[in-house]
């Protein structure tokens, strides 16, 4: 379901539902918090750069969480950083989404047993929408994760609360 499968009844007029319009607007301009943690952040930056071009999905890094729609947790979440991530997430305006990128952020990764300083999964502090596996995930994998998130937003309802 998108905008363009609806009938054009006249020039410059598109008929759609408010729900579809909002969802389309939201999923087409996911501004991300300009924020990275570890080696995953390098892949995230590569995804933003010209070769993979995150911008074609409307993803632009914003310098403030108050202007952002999505936070990509790209890397090892230490216990020290977890408190800051929680605060960043709380500072974002609704609707807000979380992509957990890489094994560390998904479940602690290689630090799962002896990482005395690592939070074993960012979902212990903030709710995650999409998990991207990999160590680190290639830019293609992150793009796939973003498209999964877009799919999720496309099926959201204004009245029915999701997740």
């Amino acid at each position: 379901m998108g905008l363009l499968d609806k009938q054009f009844s006249d020039d410059n007029i598109v008929i759609t539902t408010a729900e579809d319009l909002f969802n389309w607007a939201r999923l087409s301009s996911l501004w991300q918090v300009s924020f990275g943690l570890a080696c995953c952040a390098i892949e995230m930056m590569a995804t933003s750069a010209s070769h993979y071009d995150f911008d074609r999905f409307g993803v632009i890094p914003r310098p403030s969480p108050r202007q952002s729609d999505v936070i990509i947790v790209s890397g090892t979440v230490t216990l020290k950083m977890a408190l800051r991530i929680k605060r960043l997430y709380e500072q974002m305006p609704d609707p807000k989404y979380v992509i957990s990128m890489g094994s560390c952020s998904n479940c602690g990764g290689p630090y799962w047993e002896h990482g005395y300083h690592v939070l074993k999964g960012v979902d212990r502090v903030i709710p995650v929408d999409v998990y991207v596996p990999g160590c680190p995930p290639r830019p293609e994998a992150l793009l796939e994760g973003l498209m999964k998130l877009q799919e999720k937003i496309r099926n959201e309802s204004l009245v029915k609360k999701s997740a």
Partner: peptide
């Protein structure tokens, strides 16, 4: 310098170090 300033569980590279169950309400073990 590396651990949080309010880390109370001791010094992690001591051979008899025990990691805490919780830190600020976050579960620490896997």
């Amino acid at each position: 310098i590396l651990m949080p300033y309010d880390w109370e569980a001791g010094h992690p590279l001591r051979k008899d170090y025990k990691n805490p169950e919780f830190y600020h309400g976050m579960k620490v073990p896997y």
